[in-house]
Computed example of a mutant assay.
Amino acid sequence: MNIKQLNYFLSVAECKSIASAARELKIAQPALSLQISKLEHELKTTLFSRGVKGVQLTESGNIFKEHVRLMLTQLDKAVADLSELDGSPKGTIIIAMNQATDNILALPLCRAVEKKYPEIDLDLRTGLSYEVVNMLKRGEVDLAIIYEDGLNSDNINRELLIKENLLFATKPNHTNKYQTSIEFNKLTEYELVITSEKESQGYIIEKYERKTGIKLNKRRPYGQLLTSLRFACEGYCNLLLPSSAFYHLEDNKFIKSLKVVEPEIFRNVYIATEANRPVRNISLEIIKIIKNLTKEFNEKGIWQGDLP
């Protein structure tokens, strides 16, 4: 078994066709078939079921595919780690964050990294807060931006990036035109789109409900964040979100935000790395860039909250 065979296997699995994979890999189809057969013989199992419409992974093939992806990802990381030692950082850095943070950081972060480290390929992944944590735990990313969510964070190193405010976001109208804040108990007058307690936002809101003894009128989201924001812009719902999620919409007067008071709602945002793996030097440099961008956006008021 060798790396070339593993890459051949993944290509066939993704193309679902030996002929298509051979064209993509620029090798002869019989040669590719032979390498897959050798791999199956060595593993003493059948990885693909063959049919007139192509190939499909067997149960063994699916299991092997997940292990191969992880192995090749770790190998790529090892090569990138070693390349940094010669003073020429290059390769792929994978960062995971949720949609709100991605909205404010993705573009300026890509620009800053491209300018300072042109040989670095920045791979950004997004997901719900618990999905981002799981990516980090599985070793799929180099670093992540995660939220306070009450979940088990064993084997994760966390550093506070910002203590962000969750704001009341609604459609602008004549009633809230001059309003700048809203008391927590007044939120009961509105239906609020809130995620489940499994996700960070739902966890934080439930914590404040316990703290105040006030139960809010909650409903589940309308799909992804972008969809819920569209609903809010049209006046179909109200949201509790960090300003990072909608500052661009507020600038264009599609959304009006009010600061929640008595009490304010805060959520801790962390830069996180896997505790069992040494942090790459280039990752430390990118963390510095993320901190500088966060400070800049906080000072401009587009990412509201308290810096550490």
Score class of each variant (00 low, 15 high):
Met1Tyr: 06
Asn2Ile: 01
Phe9Ala: 07
Leu10Ala: 11
Cys15Lys: 00
Lys16Ile: 00
Ser20His: 00
Ala21Glu: 01
Glu24Gln: 09
Leu25Gly: 04
Lys26Cys: 11
Ala28Phe: 00
Ala28Cys: 04
Pro30Ser: 08
Leu32Tyr: 00
Leu34Gln: 12
Lys38Arg: 15
Leu39His: 06
Leu39Met: 14
Glu40Gly: 13
Glu40Asn: 11
Glu40Tyr: 00
His41Ser: 14
Glu42Val: 02
Leu43His: 08
Thr45Cys: 15
Thr46Glu: 13
Phe48Tyr: 10
Ser49Thr: 14
Gly51Asn: 10
Val55Asp: 03
Val55Met: 01
Val55Thr: 06
Gln56Leu: 11
Leu57Trp: 01
Thr58Lys: 03
Glu59Ala: 14
Glu59Ser: 13
Ser60Trp: 06
Gly61Met: 04
Asn62Lys: 13
Lys65Glu: 15
Val68Thr: 13
Val68Glu: 11
Arg69Asn: 13
Met71Thr: 09
Thr73Pro: 00
Lys77Asn: 14
Val79Arg: 15
Leu82His: 12
Glu84Lys: 02
Leu85Phe: 06
Asp86Leu: 07
Asp86Arg: 08
Pro89Ile: 05
Gly91Thr: 01
Gly91Ala: 07
Ile94Arg: 12
Ala100Gln: 02
Asn103Trp: 01
Ile104Pro: 10
Leu105Ser: 08
Ala106Gly: 03
Leu107Ile: 12
Cys110Arg: 15
Ala112Ser: 14
Pro118Phe: 04
Glu119Met: 12
Asp123Trp: 00
Gly127Gln: 03
Gly127Tyr: 01
Leu128Arg: 07
Tyr130Asn: 10
Val132Trp: 01
Val132His: 02
Asn134Thr: 06
Lys137Arg: 08
Glu140Lys: 06
Val141Arg: 00
Asp142Cys: 04
Ile145Lys: 02
Gly150Val: 07
Gly150Thr: 06
Asn152Asp: 15
Ile156Ser: 09
Ile162Arg: 03
Glu164Met: 03
Glu164Val: 03
Leu166His: 04
Leu166Met: 12
Phe168Asp: 07
Phe168Arg: 03
Ala169Val: 15
Thr170Lys: 03
Tyr178Trp: 09
Gln179Tyr: 03
Thr180Gly: 06
Thr180Asp: 13
Thr180Met: 09
Ser181Met: 05
Glu189Asn: 12
Glu189Asp: 15
Ser196Leu: 06
Gln201Ala: 11
Gly202Glu: 06
Thr212Tyr: 00
Gly213Val: 02
Ile214Glu: 13
Arg219Trp: 07
Gln224Val: 12
Leu226Asp: 15
Leu226Gly: 08
Cys233Pro: 02
Asn238Ala: 07
Leu240Ile: 15
Leu241Gly: 05
Pro242Ser: 13
Ser243Gln: 11
Ser244Val: 10
Phe246Ala: 09
Tyr247Asp: 08
His248Pro: 03
Leu249Thr: 01
Asn252Cys: 09
Asn252Gly: 04
Lys256Trp: 09
Ser257Val: 01
Lys259Asn: 11
Val261Arg: 04
Glu264Val: 04
Arg267Val: 11
Arg267Asn: 14
Val269Ser: 10
Glu274Leu: 13
Ala275Met: 08
Val279Met: 12
Asn281Ile: 08
Ile282Trp: 02
Ser283Tyr: 00
Glu285Cys: 11
Ile286Ser: 10
Ile287Ala: 09
Asn292Tyr: 01
Asn292Ser: 14
Leu293Ser: 05
Glu296Phe: 07
Glu296Pro: 04
Glu296Gly: 06
Asn298Asp: 08
Asn298Leu: 03
Ile302Arg: 05
Trp303Asp: 09
Asp306Pro: 01
